[in-house]
Structure formats: C-alpha cells, structure tokens
Design a protein around this nucleic acid. Structure first.
Lengths: 135, 135
DNA sequence: CAAACTGTATCACTTCAGTAATACAACAGT
DNA sequence: ACTGTTGTATTACTGAAGTGATACAGTTTG
C-alpha cells in the first residue's frame, strides 16, 4: 500500500495516514474486506512509532472506514459508514456550509463551485496511474 | 455587531470570531467599507483579551476580508480577496476534494451533494431574521 | 501639547495535541 | 504449551497553540 508522509507539512502524521486511506477507499483502490498492513509493519515502513499508526487506524474505525479484528488484523469495512442518515446529513451540511462560505469569500459563484465539483468528482472516480498528485 | 462566543466548544475564540465575521460578510450582513468595532471595544463586549481580537482581525486581514487603517480602525475590505485566481482555485480544489471524499465515505452520491449545495447556498444568500442558527 | 482613541509588540503562562518508549493481552499455528 | 503475530494501555516528553498582562507607537482633536 502506497502511503507517503510529508514530514513538515504541518499536518500531523496520523492525520495524513487517515486522509490517504480515506482517499484510497473513496476511489476504490482499497476494496472492502481487504487487509491493511499491521500496525507494526506500517510503522516500520513509514519510520514512525506504532502508536501513531494505531491512532490512525482507531480514527478510521470510529469513522466506519475500517474494521479491526482483535488478533487478526485491520480490514476495510464492508459497506459505508453505519452512521444514521440524519447524522451524516448534519455533518455533510456543515462541510458544505464551510465550503460555500470560503468559496464566496474567494469570490467564486455558485456555478463555478458546482462545475468544479463535477470535475473533481470525475477525477476521483477514474484514478489513472498518471493522476496521483493529491496535494 | 452580533457575535457570540461559545466558551468551551473546543473552537478557539479568535477562530470563532473569524468564522462568524466571514459568515456575516458572505451573507451580506456586513458590507464593504463598514467599520468593525475597535479591538478594545469588541474585547470588552465579549469579555476576552484585546490580543485575541487583534489576532482575529489580523487573520481576517491576511485573508483579505478586512482592511486595517492605522489609527482609524478596521473596515470590511472593498472587493473580494486579492489572491490570484490560480491560488484561489487551488485552495478551493482542496476543499472540494475533502468534501467529496467525506461525502463518498458517508455514502452520498454526487447528485445528493450537488442538491444539498444548492439548498445551502439558497439559505446563505437569503438570510431571514428567523434563520440565524449557524451551529 | 495633552488626552483619547486607534492598532502593535513583547513576554509569560497554561494547556493540549502529537508522538514516542515500553509493557500488556489475546489469539493462531506449530 | 510456546512462539510469533495481532491490537491495546500507560505513561512521559515536547513543542506549539491560545490567551492574557502590559507597555508601546502612531493620529486625531480639543
């Protein structure tokens, strides 16, 4: 599994991991049921403390992205997050609000935002080999 | 100017101020050229240290929302942020990506996201007196 | 020029987020 | 049962973020 840590990006390591795994799942490059590297293995690979990986995995589990089986390992969860639709909608609403306020601040029109979203969605759904610059 | 601080929300005071002022500008309730309360006055009103307000105003100035005139006060900036379009697009792209990944994680389809955005935009653009629950 | 107002700068205190070292507990396979 | 693998828990260090006390530096205006 390809995960890259950018040391002094300001973004904490465990969060970089969380985000990248979410990307991988969202784009289908990690499939439900698939096993993730064990905490220690990934820790060694990325040269960080196992606790840091453990934390990332814990967050991913809370978010419903991943499922931990006691002594067997960590796996991509079967379906989407088990949160109630109402909860999810509330969360999504907050995100959308943030986005719209920022966009408005930056002087973008609604149409531009919508167009941009369709473009990015397209990119996310059809990840080609060339296209992996996510920063 | 109506700003409310929720003490232990986890969100730092200066950020709450920044966000609320951005909302007020984005929704047109604060107009370009309008003067903000002086640092000390707002500090007293909100019962926080003047430094905290100063910080909020500084961030807003950096973001291009606000303009400080040495000894005259702080005012809503005339036009949108002066950032180059390219910069703004890059920022917006990041936000959009985040949103889409989260939405996908939560099991939402593109159409639902788009619809939601149009709803929220409508709310932001037409703020009625009754409609000021932004949390 | 003194008083009253702007925003600014410096420094110190406190808390907490991020990370690490290290020891623990459960299960699988030989 | 032993060994090696999981993930877990406890504790401690460190640096940065958030806030505050307090002093500074320009304008305006009486």
């Amino acid at each position: 599994m390809q995960i890259h840590i950018h040391a002094q990006d300001g973004v904490p390591i465990y969060l970089q991991i969380v985000q990248q795994i979410k990307y991988l799942v969202a784009s289908g490059r990690l499939q439900p049921g698939e096993e993730l590297p064990s905490i220690r293995v990934l820790a060694e690979q990325l040269l960080v403390n196992p606790n840091t990986i453990a934390r990332a995995y814990r967050e991913l589990e809370t978010a419903g992205v991943v499922e931990k089986r006691r002594t067997a390992g960590t796996f991509i969860a079967e379906s989407g997050s088990p949160l109630a639709r109402k909860e999810r909608l509330k969360l999504l609403n907050e995100r959308v609000d943030q986005l719209l306020v920022e966009a408005s601040q930056m002087g973008f029109e609604l149409n531009e935002v919508l167009k941009l979203i369709q473009q990015r969605e397209h990119v996310l759904r059809q990840p080609k080999k060339e296209e992996r610059n996510h920063e």
